[in-house]
Write a protein that binds this DNA or RNA. Structure first.
Lengths: 105, 105
DNA sequence: CTGGATCCTGATGGATACTG
DNA sequence: CAGTATCCATCAGGATCCAG
């Protein structure tokens, strides 16, 4: 994910952020299915363990793909909503969707 | 990449195959930079360990993305060349390239 | 010398239980 | 509901070894 930081190839840099099994699925849920709360992501994302969901959400916020917005006090609750940068991954998701539909299963 | 096999979402299925740090980089090298031999991939792919390169190449062949073609006897040597299915990931790579160029670094 | 296979060790993933 | 903590299994990464 951010290991032996690699080349300046834009593909490699993109993969350093979204190149794992869960991150793009979470982004799909946020961008396509409009999931917002932790619980919504948890139910939607193919049984992702909560520990990984929490870590991925945090990383997506840190990297500026999602914004953590409080929407209620007592107790405080948050929504995770895509930023412009987050919305910019839609073409990647679309490309994967098309590939999967025409070349897999 | 074929773990607790997930949903039938085409995105999830695509990620089960290319959702790691190296696979798409290898495909980039094959498709964009026309790498063919093991040595070419090894030098090109941002210092990938040989063990991982060997494993990923094997998996890409098994999954029908690359074809292993002998091009010389004594000693026998192989080229890894993209199949039609392999070529179909170009749009994904292009989408990542564009994203990386406009939104990272 | 090319094309890997093997081995070791630390990091990450994944499932479940637990807490504010 | 929204996460942490924990524990074990698996994988990544690097070095080295081996076969043709």
């Amino acid at each position: 994910m951010n290991p032996t930081h690699r080349s300046h190839c834009p593909i490699a840099q993109t993969l350093d952020i979204v190149g794992d099994k869960w991150t793009l699925l979470i982004l799909r849920d946020a961008l396509v299915f409009k999931r917002k709360s932790f619980a919504e992501f948890e139910q939607s994302s193919e049984n992702i363990p909560t520990s990984l969901l929490a870590e991925r959400l945090k990383r997506l916020v840190e990297n500026g793909f999602l914004e953590k917005i409080p929407y209620q006090d007592k107790p405080v609750r948050y929504h995770y909503v895509p930023t412009d940068k987050g919305k910019a991954v839609i073409p990647i998701i679309r490309a994967m969707k098309k590939f999967g539909e025409t070349h897999l299963a």
